[in-house]
Amino acid sequence: MLESTKFIISKLSRDRTSLVGAFLLIALVLIAIFAPVLAPYPEDVTEFHPPERLFGPSMLHFFGTDRMGSDIFSRMLFGARITIAIAVIAVGVSVLVGVPIGLIAGYNRSWISDGLMRISDIFLAVPQIILAIAIAQTLGPSIENVILALSATYWPFWARLVYAETRSALTETYVEASIALGASPFRVMVFHVLPNISSSIIVRTTIGMGGTILTAAALGFLGLGPPAPSPEWGRTIAESREFLPEAWWYATAPGVAIFLVVMGFNLFGDGLRDILDPRTRRSNDG
C-alpha cells in the first residue's frame, strides 16, 4: 500500500497538469485553514462598515469592498471554508451512501439488486441541479440543507459506478475462489471487492468534487445557499449584480475563486485517472 502510494505520487509529480491541480487544491486547503490569519479583516465576515461601501481594489482592500463596506478579500478567504465544507461533506455522504448500495446491489443478484439500481437510475435520469433546487427550496436556505440536497442527488453516481465495478470484480478468479472457500458475503465485499475497486472510487470522487462545487455555487447564486451575511462565493456573485458595471471588482474575486478550485479538482482528477484507471485514459498522447 505504501509502495503503491509512493508510485502514484512519483507519477503525478511528473505530470504537469496534475501538479497544477495539486497546487491549486493545496492552496485551497491552506487558505481555508489559515483564513483567520491570512485575512486582513477577519471580522468583516459578520461586521459592516457602510461608509466604506463599494470601494475599488487598493492596498487596503485587495479585491475592494462590498455593498456593506466589508473587505471582499477577507470574505473570499472565509468563503473557501464554506466551499470545502460543502464539497467534502456532501461528497463524503454521497460516497458513504452510494458505495454500500452499489456493493450490495452488485453482489446480490435478486430483486433487491434490480430495485436499488432502478431507484438510482431514476435519480440519474434528472439533472442533479434540478432535484437539488427542489430539495434545497423545500428545506430552506442553509449550509446544512445545501449539503443534504447535494448528497441526496449525487449518491447514485457512486452507486452506479460501484455496482458495475463489483459485477466485474466478482468474475475475478481470486474473488470466485474466496467465495468457493466459503467466505461470508460481508468478508468478500469488504476485503476482496472493495480494495479492488477503490481506485475507481477515488478517481470518481475527485472529479465529482468539481461538479459538486459548481452546483453548490449555483444554489448559492440562486439564493438557496447559506443566507446573508455568509461569504459564500455564489451568493457574493449574486449580490454584486445590482452594482455592475461600476463595481466590476465585486464579482471578479469569487468567480475566479470558483473557477480555480473546480479547475484544481478537474486537473488533479484527470491525472489520477490516467494513473489509476488506464481503461478510461484521456487520449492525450495517442
Binding site: 459548481l214 449555483a218 454584486s240 464579482a251 468567480g255 473546480v262
Partner: peptide, 10 residues
C-alpha cells in the same frame, strides 16, 4: 468545464 455559467454570463 470549470467555469460557473452564472459568472461567465455576468
Amino acid at each position: 468545464l470549470a467555469i460557473a455559467s452564472f459568472w461567465l454570463a455576468i
